[in-house]
Design a protein around this nucleic acid. Structure first.
Lengths: 168, 168
DNA sequence: TTGACATAGTTAGTCAGCTAACTATAATGT
DNA sequence: ACATTATAGTTAGCTGACTAACTATGTCAA
């Protein structure tokens, strides 16, 4: 995401705006702070998960499986929902299967397809990780009351609609 | 960052909150939306830069050099400001030097050290990329008036202070 | 009914980040 | 003054994403 640590000060932005008149100083500043905070959140989440031998990718796979009543899904459905390629999902499942958190079940219905099933060990892992995650997240966000949370969601919605401007 | 595409609905979060009572539904929802929008912004920025043969890493190096009056810095200072390791900075500079956008200048003062200098071609590249970047960013954020931008900054500040909760 | 196309999953190779180890040079303390 | 320690940069090898190509299986229309 945003690696940059040394965010531009208003002075730097003003200097750049002289050369590049299209620069909108508060827009740039808000944009960069948003990326900075989100990146740091993501890094902090990884640090939290790594205590349990997980990374975001594998953790989300476990959660996606837990969302299913059958605790079961296919690699391609998981890939779509997790937002990675099927090739990446193959690797994630390999790792989870080696750790015994999921199993590949071969079905007769469609012999191209495989079912991925959350094991008891996988569910047990979530039952340890999720309470810690939820507790820390609650504390992280506790300074935001409901009103501010709604303001944030609304602002994010507006920015989200604007993203198209980057892609044409 | 956040790969997950299929963000949990309120129903899913409610179901999870039954099993994990620490779950704070609006906290989780705000958190995930923040990561989702920031990730999509970052991807969109990459798409914009890639039209000019740049990626975020190399682009930030050029900008950091342009910030200096001398258009010059050292790999270690650049690494600190760009938020990457010195090893990574070596690779970024290799790529930029091959493209002729920067040059390594060996100095006699401290023979361990190298100066990295923005070339005319590097400045010319920025003079093409930056106006496009600023124009798109302005448009992306145009739905946010100054009041909302300040609200966003304030909320981000609160969340930023909360990040410590993830790390202990 | 069979040739063309579509779909599911995997494999191979690339990329940009990382850490750890290394070389060379400089600074420091006894 | 010289051994130790610190600093600057690079190299080598690891990781988890990616794309592209491949195997196997299923679908469909002439």
């Amino acid at each position: 995401m945003l690696q940059l640590r040394d965010l531009p000060t208003t002075e730097v932005l003003t200097k750049f705006a002289e050369r590049y008149p299209d620069a909108d100083i508060t827009a740039v500043s808000s944009f960069l702070h948003l990326l900075r905070v989100a990146t740091d959140l993501s890094i902090a989440l990884d640090a939290c998960l790594s205590k349990y031998g997980l990374l975001q990718g594998r953790w989300w796979v476990l959660i996606l499986l837990m969302r299913e009543d059958s605790r079961t899904s296919t690699p391609s459905a998981l890939a779509d929902k997790a937002g990675v390629t099927r090739a990446t999902m193959t690797g994630l499942i390999d790792g989870l299967e080696q750790s015994g958190l999921v199993v590949r079940v071969y079905t007769k219905d469609d012999r191209r397809s495989v079912l991925i099933s959350l094991t008891d060990a996988g569910q047990a892992k979530l039952d340890v990780v999720m309470p810690d995650y939820y507790r820390r997240l609650r504390q992280c966000m506790q300074a935001l009351n409901e009103e501010k949370r709604m303001q944030l969601q609304q602002i994010l919605g507006l920015i989200n609609s604007g993203i198209a401007a980057f892609i044409e």
